[in-house]
Write a protein that binds this DNA or RNA. Structure first.
Lengths: 72, 72
DNA sequence: ATATAAAGTGCAGTGAAAAGCACTTTTTAA
DNA sequence: TTAAAAAGTGCTTTTCACTGCACTTTATAT
């Protein structure tokens, strides 16, 4: 999952919940300026920032093993 | 998934592949000092750093929707 | 058409992530 | 037991994420 895909998921989720960037910024504790950056495809968020947004949106940041068929 | 869980997965994966921190640092392009921080439970990596480690270890950073039973 | 709300952008300051270096501690083999 | 390898830690510098502010552009009504 590339950065931009992740940004798109955050944006899509926010929109599907009918929440403005400003409201999400308040709910998540992430600055509006920062959120705008991500939704316009730029930036390199810290894990903490991603998790704040995730918490507010009902999303979870996970790390999974690729190639489940081949590896254990 | 909390930060420390993610760190633990990275560490466990590295160990299961029998790779040293030093080798992983070289393979991933993440500095040894930075990697050491994470594996000792500290720090707040950027998405890019997490993805570099993930790429080297066959792990993927994803964002998923919580409560799959309740939400669409 | 035109207010109003929402989203996008440039610039600058602050703090923290990333990294290098030197050193200590722990683990692993011989 | 004791070298050697691997992992952990303190200190420092450099880079950049995060943020605020001011402004522009684009949607969304009325």
């Amino acid at each position: 999952m590339h950065s931009k895909e992740i940004f798109n998921i955050v944006k899509a989720r926010r929109e599907s919940l009918n929440v403005t960037q400003e409201t999400l910024a308040q709910l998540s504790g992430v600055a509006l300026r920062t959120l705008k950056q991500f939704e316009s495809g730029k930036g390199n968020p810290t894990l903490q920032t991603l998790q704040k947004l995730g918490d507010a949106l009902g999303l979870e940041v996970t790390v999974i093993i690729k190639n489940r068929g081949i590896n254990a």
